[in-house]
Design a protein around this nucleic acid. Structure first.
Lengths: 204, 204
DNA sequence: CAGAAACCGTAACCACAATTACGGATTAAA
DNA sequence: TTTAATCCGTAATTGTGGTTACGGTTTCTG
C-alpha cells in the first residue's frame, strides 16, 4: 500500500473512531464497532495500531497536533499581542469545550494506564503554555502588560479563560458553551489580565 | 438488622469501595473486588445498592454531603467575609484536588449514563456556588468588594481558585498540589478578586 | 428459645469485548 | 500477467465482570 494511500485510509479509520467515541464513550467504543464504522477489519486495526490503547493514543496525538496547528495559525495573523490573545482565546476555549476534546478527555479519565492522560497533557497544556508565554512576553514588550514571571502570567490568564468550565464539561455534563459565551468569557479574561497586570514603564 | 448497625456496615462497605476505586479506577473496581475488600457478599451489595451504578451514586452522594458539611463548618467560624474566603478557599481546593474526589471525577467521566456526573455537579458546584455567593454578598455589605452580579463574582473567584488545575488532575495526571501550593493559590485568587472588584462606597 | 431473615463465601450464568485466526477478495509489486 | 501481501467480513478464543443463585452460618425478631 502506498504511503499516502495508507495515510488517507488511516484518517478515515480515525474519523470513524472519533465518531464512535463521541456517540458511545470510551467503554462503548469497541474495536469491532470502530472497524464496522470504518468498513475495516479488526485485523487491520490491530496491525496498524497495536491494540485499543494504541488506536486511542493515535487519536489523541492527531487531535493535539491539529489543535496546535490551529493555534499557531492564529498567532501568525496578528502583530499586536493583545489582538493575538483576542483571536487565540476563543479558539482555544472552543477547542477545549468542543465535543471531540470532551470525549477524548473522558477516555483519558477512564484509561487505567494513564497514558492517554499523559499524552493529552504533553501535547495539550504543556505545548500551549510556552506558546502563550511568548505572546505574553510580546505583550510586555509592546507596553500592554506588566508582570514579573511569565509562566505565572500565562497561568493566570488560562485560569480566567478556562476556569472550571472544562472539568464541568468533562465530568459534570455541562452543555457546550455558545460561541457568544466563548467570546464573552475570552474578552473578560483579557480585561481581567490587563487590570491585574498593568504595564509599568521603566526599569523595575 | 438495626438501623444504626446497618448504617455502620454501609459506611464500612463504602470506605472499602472508595479504597478500591482509588487503587484500581472505575473499570477495575468490580463489585466482587469491593465485596472482598469489605468482607461482604455480592448479594448484600446488590440488595443494598441495586447495582454497580447505585453503589457509586451512593459514594458520590456521601462525598458531596461530607464536602458540604466541611465547607459549611468553615463558614460559621468567621464573621469577616474575607477571612471566611481565606479559610474556605484552601479547604475547597484541597477537596477538589484530593485523591478521592479525583477518583470519583474519573468514575463520572467514565460512566456512560452520565448519572454520576450529574450527581457530582448537583451536589458539588451547584451546591457550593450559592454558599459562596452568600459570602460574596457579605463581603460587599462589609465594604470589602464591589460588583454588580454576585453569580459572576463567585464564578470569577472559582475560576481564579480552581482554574484548570482540577481538569489537569483528573485527566492530565498532574500530581496533587502541596498544602503550600494550595494556600498560595487561594491567597492569590483572593488578592486578584479584591483587585478586580474594588469596593465602591455610596449608591451606584 | 425457635424460626425467619439476611449475611457470607463461593459458584454459576451470561454477555461482552479484546484479541487472534481464517478463507476469500482486493491491491500492490515485480 | 503472476505472485505475494494485505485487507475485509466473519468467526473463534479467552478472559472478565455484572448479576444471580446457593448452602451454610449468623443475626434478628417475636
Amino acid at each position: 500500500m502506498r504511503e499516502d494511500t495508507k495515510r488517507r485510509r488511516q484518517a478515515q479509520i480515525e474519523d470513524a473512531a472519533y465518531a464512535v467515541l463521541e456517540e458511545k464513550g470510551y467503554a462503548g467504543a469497541s474495536m469491532l464497532a470502530i472497524a464496522r464504522r470504518a468498513k475495516a477489519s479488526n485485523e487491520t486495526l490491530y496491525n496498524w495500531y497495536g491494540d485499543k490503547l494504541g488506536l486511542f493514543m493515535a487519536l489523541v496525538d492527531r487531535n493535539v497536533g491539529e489543535a496546535r496547528a490551529s493555534l499557531e495559525e492564529s498567532l501568525s495573523a496578528e502583530d499586536d499581542a493583545l489582538a493575538t490573545l483576542r483571536t487565540f482565546g476563543p479558539i482555544l476555549l472552543g477547542m477545549l469545550t468542543g465535543p471531540r476534546a470532551v470525549a477524548l478527555n473522558r477516555a483519558a479519565a477512564a484509561d487505567p494506564s494513564g497514558d492517554l492522560g499523559h499524552a493529552i497533557a504533553k501535547g495539550g497544556r504543556e505545548t500551549i503554555a510556552p506558546i502563550l508565554e511568548d505572546v505574553f512576553r510580546a505583550a510586555r514588550a509592546q507596553g500592554h502588560l506588566g508582570f514579573a514571571e511569565v509562566d505565572e502570567a500565562a497561568e493566570l490568564y488560562l485560569g480566567l479563560l478556562i476556569g472550571d468550565l472544562q472539568i464541568r464539561r468533562v465530568v459534570g455534563r455541562l452543555p457546550a458553551p455558545t460561541a457568544a459565551d466563548i467570546e464573552r468569557r475570552s474578552a473578560r479574561a483579557l480585561e481581567a489580565v490587563i487590570c491585574l497586570m498593568p504595564f509599568e514603564a521603566g526599569p523595575g
